[in-house]
């Protein structure tokens, strides 16, 4: 019998099931946050929906014990895979004191957690690219075998920091993997109005690194590309640019109405390729998941997310005056 795709990549049944669970968890937490937002309980949501396969597929290809991640604001799948918990994500959603990302100082989606090597991020897009390059520079200088992994949207690939950062990495052959999560929209502006070239990966040649465009709805394709990039990086062969193409299934954020700029038919069409459905089908076809187990998984997720929501909702805010702390070392 021919090997299944995941076996050919060296992934066990348990590992792909774990990937699926992480994707599903990200989706379900995100959905809950929208409900909480619409119920007036949290002021803001920015979604990962539609990009979970790329995020989780990539994270599973990294060494999550030593690699560094510089995620962007949609990367709930990445941070979950790197060790952030549902409770911690909900604490961030509710802006509570215990939120490990910022103690309630930043909006949700502004990830950061030193113990899991998740660099702290901001709102101006693409500033994280040079940071990841700096971490990779440190890896090279200290002759360590970790890599840094940075993500951004396709619109952000127009920013100067993208070009400056990738060129620096190319010149110094640094172990950094840049993954552009191309979800086809930068808020309302479609990709045709963002890129002078056809694909984001076309830009790689200008920085002296290989560039690949892959199906971001397929976690195994993303896993394969990131795995190969990581192997190159630790062998001293330098950086890689990966463009994972998917679709943003929600509006840009809870403050956006995407009906003003894209047709519903287009969104409905994209939902047919939703990785939460297609990857579940793959697992079922390979006998790793059945309908019953899938339902049990959904129930388990609901429990975890209910717990996280209750915990975060009841957790205290930081003291108001604590806003004065940590401007400088204390």
């Amino acid at each position: 019998m021919a090997k299944s795709r995941h076996e050919a990549l060296g992934l066990s049944d348990d590992q792909v099931l774990e990937m699926f669970k992480t994707m599903l968890l990200a989706r379900k937490i995100d959905e809950r946050m929208w409900l909480l937002n619409r119920a007036g309980k949290i002021p803001f949501v920015i979604s990962c929906q539609g990009q979970e396969a790329a995020q989780v597929g990539a994270a599973f290809a990294l060494d999550r014990e030593k690699d560094y991640a510089a995620p962007y604001y949609r990367d709930m799948g990445v941070v979950l895979a790197f060790g952030m918990t549902p409770r911690e994500l909900m604490l961030s959603g509710f802006a509570k004191s215990e939120d490990p990302n910022s103690g309630g100082r930043q909006m949700p989606g502004h990830f950061g957690q030193k113990k899991n090597r998740i660099l702290t991020g901001s709102s101006p897009v693409t500033t994280q690219v040079p940071h990841a390059v700096g971490v990779a520079l440190a890896a090279k200088m200290e002759k360590k075998d970790f890599v840094s992994f940075v993500t951004l949207g396709e619109g952000s690939s127009n920013q100067g920091d993208f070009h400056e950062g990738l060129n620096f990495a190319g010149v110094h052959k640094l172990p950094v993997i840049t993954m552009v999560e191309n979800n086809k929209y930068a808020i309302s502006v479609p990709i045709e109005k963002q890129l002078g070239c056809e694909k984001v990966s076309d830009r790689a040649i200008g920085y002296g690194m290989p560039g690949f465009t892959i199906d971001g709805n397929d976690p195994l394709a993303v896993y394969e590309a990131v795995k190969a990039a990581r192997e190159r990086a630790v062998k001293g062969e330098g950086p890689t640019l990966i463009e994972a193409v998917s679709y943003r299934l929600t509006a840009h954020s809870s403050d956006d109405d995407d009906r003003t700029y894209r047709e519903r038919e287009e969104v409905e069409e994209a939902k047919k390729k939703d990785s939460i459905i297609t990857f579940a089908n793959y697992l079922k076809e390979n006998g790793i998941l059945n309908d019953e187990q899938e339902k049990a998984l959904h129930d388990e997720m609901a429990k975890i997310i209910n717990d996280a929501t209750d915990y975060a909702e009841n957790a205290p805010y930081a003291e108001a005056e604590s806003a004065l702390k940590y401007v400088y070392a204390e």
Binding site: H131, V135, D161, G165
Partner: peptide
């Protein structure tokens, strides 16, 4: 470094965070 000031600062910032 390449002639690119945002990278000089930004790469330095990443290395400093490390």
């Amino acid at each position: 470094t390449p002639l690119a000031e945002s990278a000089i600062a930004g790469v330095g910032i990443g290395a400093a965070m490390y």
